Amino acid sequence: MKTILCYGDSLTWGYDAASLGRHALENRWPSVLGAELGGDIQVIAEGLNGRTTAFDDHLAGADRNGARVLPTILTSHAPLDLIIIMLGANDMKPWVHGNPVAAKQGIQRLIDIVRGHDYPFDWPAPQILIVAPPAVTRTDNAEFKEMFAGGDDASKRLAPQYSALADEVGCGFFDAGTVAVTTPLDGVHLDAENTRRIGQALAPLVRVMLSL
């Protein structure tokens, strides 16, 4: 069995801006990816609303710092064949840092953790696929408009930063913005169709990476 860990934020968790709840399990992109791959593949969804790459945000009860909790998650789900990391949208919040270069550095930190982790039983580190999230877009939602002020421009620069980093360190890369757009309801999240598109688009790349 091949095991894939999808490590992300609310886009991976499946936040639905229309219902202010959660998309049906079958519509979340990790579930769609698993259905597309079929066979003897386990796809684990590890999404947390508000998660950043490697920065603190204390506005919720859960630890949103992706770098701090990743080692525990890696051990919990080992052995892993592939980890798909789609983070960076929440880094665009002004009080986090709002800088795509800092988000790239956060992704670099996550890569270092995955490759340097002390896996049980001397299991090898998984392959890594970095996914740039769809860019934040303009919205009339007053709260999200302020929450991600400037994020629409800054987030457009995430994909080039992530792509260059992936080439430099030898990771897979995919720009989710090529197949999905955020909903105008809040400018950040995905409707059911767009989150499904990400899972569908990732499947061919994952097949290549895992020689399926």
Rank of each mutant, 00 (worst) to 15 (best):
F144S: 15
T139K: 02
I111R: 04
D81I: 02
V188R: 00
R207W: 04
A166F: 03
K104A: 15
N90H: 03
D152N: 11
A78E: 07
G106H: 06
A62Y: 09
H23L: 05
L190W: 00
I111Y: 09
G88A: 04
A35G: 07
A132P: 13
G47F: 03
L129M: 12
L210F: 04
K156D: 02
I198W: 10
D167M: 14
A45N: 09
Q105Y: 11
F148M: 10
D122T: 14
N99H: 12
V69L: 07
T137K: 12
E146K: 13
L87K: 09
S155L: 11
L87G: 12
A45Q: 13
G187L: 04
T183S: 15
D140N: 11
K145I: 01
E168Y: 04
L202G: 05
F121I: 08
D9K: 09
D81N: 14
G61H: 12
V32R: 03
P134Y: 01
R138A: 15
I128H: 06
M92K: 05
N49C: 13
I84Y: 00
H23P: 02
V43R: 11
Q108D: 15
T75Y: 01
R138F: 11
T183F: 07
P204R: 06
P71H: 09
G106C: 07
G21R: 06
A125Y: 09
A78M: 10
E168D: 14
I85D: 01
R68D: 08
G106A: 07
G199C: 10
G177K: 10
H97C: 09
R196Q: 15
I107F: 10
K145W: 03
A18Y: 10
A132K: 04
A149P: 01
E46N: 12
V179G: 08
S163R: 15
T53N: 11
L158Y: 05
D186R: 00
L158N: 03
L158W: 05
L33W: 06
G38F: 01
H23W: 01
D152M: 11
K93E: 07
Q200H: 11
L74H: 02
I73H: 07
T139Y: 01
R28H: 08
L129R: 06
P126Q: 14
V179P: 14
A67S: 13
V69D: 02
G187Q: 05
G98W: 08
A203T: 09
M1I: 12
K156R: 15
A54Y: 12
P126K: 13
R64V: 00
I85H: 00
R138C: 08
E168L: 14
V32A: 01
G106L: 07
M147L: 15
V188I: 14
F148S: 06
A60R: 08
L158V: 11
R22V: 01
D191W: 06
S31K: 02
